[in-house]
Write a protein that binds this DNA or RNA. Sequence first.
DNA 1: CGGGGGAATGAAAGCGATTGCATGGATTCT
DNA 2: AGAATCCATGCAATCGCTTTCATTCCCCCG
Lengths: 329, 329
Amino acid sequence: MSKPTIYSIAQRCGVSAATVSRAFNRPELVSEPVREQIMAAARELGYQPSSAARGLVTGRAETIGLIVSDITNPFFPLLVRAVQRTAERMGSALMLVDAEESAAAEVAHVARLRSRVDGVIVASPRSSSAALREAARGLPCVLLNRPLRDLSSVICDNTSALFDAGDHLYKHGHRSFALLAGPSASWAAARRSQAIRRWARGRGVELTELGPFRATFKGGRQAGAALLETAATAAFAFDDLTACGVLAELAGRGVAVPGERSVVGCDDVLLAKTVTPSLTTVTAPMDDLGETAVQVLTRQIEAPGGAPEHVRLPGVFVARDSTGPRSGS
Amino acid sequence: MSKPTIYSIAQRCGVSAATVSRAFNRPELVSEPVREQIMAAARELGYQPSSAARGLVTGRAETIGLIVSDITNPFFPLLVRAVQRTAERMGSALMLVDAEESAAAEVAHVARLRSRVDGVIVASPRSSSAALREAARGLPCVLLNRPLRDLSSVICDNTSALFDAGDHLYKHGHRSFALLAGPSASWAAARRSQAIRRWARGRGVELTELGPFRATFKGGRQAGAALLETAATAAFAFDDLTACGVLAELAGRGVAVPGERSVVGCDDVLLAKTVTPSLTTVTAPMDDLGETAVQVLTRQIEAPGGAPEHVRLPGVFVARDSTGPRSGS
DNA sequence: CGGGGGAATGAAAGCGATTGCATGGATTCT
DNA sequence: AGAATCCATGCAATCGCTTTCATTCCCCCG
C-alpha cells in the first residue's frame, strides 16, 4: 500500500479530504466525534502530512537555513544546538550547511537554500558586505556576529567583558599586556582589538600589539611564540582556540601559566573548560544568541520587507585558571 | 512582482511551461536557441525552482536527515561536515537535528523528519534496538556506529587499532594496564572494552577494569582519579574527551604524562591535537564514515526495501605525546 | 512524391495539501 | 411558525512543477 494521504483517511472515515485537513490544522472547526475518528485512522495508518504539498500551498517551507563558516570551529556546536532547539520550538526544521571557511561557498549556499527555506541565518560570515547583501536580496536573513545596516543582525559584544578581563588582570598586578590580534577580515577580531586598546589606554598600561594570527590552534602557537619575545606578563588572545595554542606553546617551552604569564581567551567554547589550565575567558551567551537569531528571523519571515533589527548581547567575563597574580617581580 | 515560476518564464519566452521545465531537467530535449533564451530569462528574473512543487510530483525531497546524539560532543563536527559535503555532492540538502543526549528525542526526531526527508542517518544512537527499528519502519535509514541486523549500518571498528595501541605501550615497557570503560549503553564502548580485554589476554598482561564512566570531561576526571588508585602505568580511555579529563586530573595532582602514566584516547577529535600533552589515540576515518553513510543511504533510497548493507571501517592508531616509556621503575 | 521516423514542443493530468465559498441541518429568536 | 444564525462539512480551485501523450514539422528514403 502506498503512503497514506488525507484522501485515504477521508475515504476510510467517510468524510471529505477538507475535513481531514481541518481536523489537523483547525481542530475547532471539526466536530469532536469526527475529529477523533480521523485522528484514530491517521494514527492507525501512520499518516504523515506531506510537507511538500503543504509547503506548496502555504508558501512556507517551515524550515530555516543555518550557514556556518566552519563547523569544526568549537564555537559553533553550541550555537547550532541553540538554533536547532529554538527552530524546533517554532515548528521549523533546520537545514545546516558548512561553508568550510570559504566566502564564495557562503553566498553560493545562500542561493542554494533559497528555494528550500523560509529564511537563513548566516553565522560569522566571511563574505564581503556587498556579496552578503546581494545574496540575501529578497530572502529573510539574519547575520550572526556581523553587523550590516540593511540586514538584521545579532551580535555578541564583548567590549565590557573585556574591560572586566583587563581589570581582573590589573588587580592581579599586571601592567604590561599583549594583544594577540585575530584575522583582519573578522569583524569580531577588529571589535575585540578595539575594546582592548581602549581599555589599555584608559588604564594607562602598556599594550603591545602582535599579529594578526589565524584563528586556529597553530595560529595560537605562533602567537605564543611571539608573546614570549615581549615583556608582557598577560595576553589577550583573539579567541579560545588561539588561547589554547598559546597555552600549548608556553607549556612546550616550559613557561608556567599562570605562574609566569597570564592568558585570557574569548568565547568560552567547550575546550576552554577542558584544557589545562582551564581558560579565563569571556563567555558568549550562545543560547541567547541562537534563540534571538531565530526569533528575529521569524519576525522577518512574517513581515517581509520589515525594517532590519539589530540585537546586541553582551559577553560575560569568567575567571578560571589561566590567569593569576603577576609573577615574582 | 511575485516570485517567478516556470510560467512567467514560459510566457516571457513564448513557449510552454513544459519546455521550460525540460530546459532545466532534460536540456537535451530542447533546441539550443530556445534553451538559451530560457536560461537567460531565468537568470534575469532570478528564477529558482520551487523544491516543494518539484518534491510533490517527484516524491523526493532531495534532502536527508542527520540525527546526532549530542552535537556538542567533539566527535561530531567533522562527521557533520563530511555528511553535508557528500550530501551536497549528491544534490541533497542536509537537515540536522541534535537529540541532546535523549534517546526518546532520537526516535521522536526520526518521526518528525519522516515527511521532509528521503532518508535519515542516525549517528551513535542511544535508543534501544527495538525503538530504532520501529522508528525507521518504511524510511530509508542508516545507523552510524551501531550495528543492527535489519537496518543498514556504517561502523568504525577500532579493534585492530587498539591492538596497535596496546603493542605500542607494550614496547614502551608497560606491563600493567587500566581500562577506563565508557557508558554501558554505548555499543562502541562495549566493543572497545572487548578489544582491549582480548589484547591484554593475548599479551598476558595485567588489566584492571574501571568504570563505567560517563563519556564527558567530568567522567574523565573521575576516571583519572580512579586510575591513580591502581598501579597501572598505562590507561585506555573510552574516548578522547574522557582522556582529556584524565589528563586534567593527573595534571591537577601533579602526575606527569607520559612521565609517570601513559594515556591513550580514541576517536581523534580536534581536541586530541590541541590538548597538552597531545593525545595518543585512534583516528576514526570521519570523512569516509560520513561519505559512506550517505552513499549507503542513497542506495537505500533508490532501492527501497533492498537488503540492508553493513560497512565496517577501521580506525588507525596514531602515537602522540600522551604515551611514552614506562616510568623509572 | 508519399509515407515513415525523429526531433521539438504543447496540452493536460496529476502530486497532496489548504482554503474560500456554498450548502444543509439544527438551533434560536421574534 | 417562519426567519435569521450558526455549525459542520463538502466542493473545487489552487500552489508550481513533472511527465505522458499527442501534435506538428521537417527530413530522408524508396
